[in-house]
Computed example of a mutant assay.
Amino acid sequence: MGGPNLEVFKFAMYISFPIGIMYYFGTNLDGRFKVDNFWPSQEQTYKIPFEREEIDKELARLKAKRLKIRDERLAQEARAKELAEAQGLRTQDQESS
């Protein structure tokens, strides 16, 4: 059909295409695919406490944070309950009228 020249051309393409892709993406990776400030700096990362005092301080901080979030949630639930009761009283007053 195509002859031996076509087969040689196809073989050359099968070999050169992957090599070309690997060469294009494999050279100058830092300049081509660099994203500035992608990783956090050393000062921005979390430091794991190893000393007993540091661990106790961190546990106290986490407990205070958890209790603060809990108190806010309970206060919000109480406000929602009061609002629901007020809405319920209004609807009962409207039904009885």
Rank of each mutant, 00 (worst) to 15 (best):
M1S: 09
G3R: 03
G3T: 04
G3K: 05
P4A: 14
F9Q: 13
K10P: 00
F11G: 03
F11T: 12
F11N: 08
M13A: 13
Y14V: 02
S16E: 03
F17Q: 07
P18I: 00
I19Q: 04
I19M: 05
G20I: 05
I21V: 15
I21T: 03
I21P: 01
M22F: 15
Y23C: 13
Y23I: 11
Y24H: 14
Y24F: 15
Y24P: 04
F25Y: 13
F25R: 03
L29Y: 05
L29P: 08
L29T: 14
L29S: 09
R32A: 10
K34Y: 15
D36S: 12
N37I: 01
N37V: 02
F38T: 01
F38S: 08
S41L: 10
E43D: 12
Q44G: 08
Q44L: 09
T45K: 14
T45G: 08
Y46V: 09
K47G: 03
K47Y: 07
I48K: 11
P49M: 02
F50Y: 14
F50K: 10
R52Q: 12
E53A: 09
E54T: 03
E54R: 04
K57F: 02
E58G: 01
E58F: 05
L59V: 06
L59D: 11
A60T: 10
R61D: 04
L62E: 12
A64W: 13
A64G: 13
K65S: 14
R66V: 00
R66S: 07
K68G: 14
R70V: 04
D71E: 15
E77P: 00
A78I: 00
E82G: 10
E82C: 06
L83I: 08
L83C: 06
E85Y: 03
E85S: 10
E85A: 11
E85W: 06
Q87A: 15
Q87N: 14
G88F: 04
L89T: 04
L89D: 12
L89N: 15
R90D: 07
T91I: 15
Q92L: 11
Q92W: 07
D93E: 13
D93T: 09
E95K: 11
S96I: 09
S97E: 12
S97V: 06
S97Q: 09
S97Y: 13
